[in-house]
Amino acid sequence: MELIINSTIIILFILGLYGLLTQRNIIKLAICFNIMEASILIFFLTVGYKPEGSYPIIRPEVDSYVQPLPQALALTAIVIGASTTALMLAFAIKLYKRYHTLDIDKLRRLRG
């Protein structure tokens, strides 16, 4: 079970990285970045998880809850990741206006 979850997380991350290294479209790069981020969010959620745990709103009838802290961290990470993605898209729009291409390999005025 753990092996499966671990490898899911890692494969997700590696897939995102692979896309980041091989895809040339800027939009696709943003998507790949989100995939990489998804892997770490899954990791956060697995950290605090309990098989029989309930969601962390304290009620008298329940006595086993999942950890609330990783969820809070994941929420923060989601917001930050969303901001980064939005920034990437804004850059993509702006770059497309200037360079008339979304190909990362063509964005090479700065080199050497």
Binding site: V47, P51, P56, Q67, P68, A72
Partner: peptide, 28 residues
């Protein structure tokens, strides 16, 4: 550590004392 590892007294502190500390039930 195993995924369903319970850090015993360390982090479940929020579950145990959160209601008393903050006065809200939603611990997140």
């Amino acid at each position: 550590p195993p995924i369903f590892y319970d850090f015993a007294d360390k982090t479940s502190v929020y579950i145990q004392e959160g209601v008393v500390d903050t006065g809200v039930t939603n611990q997140v």
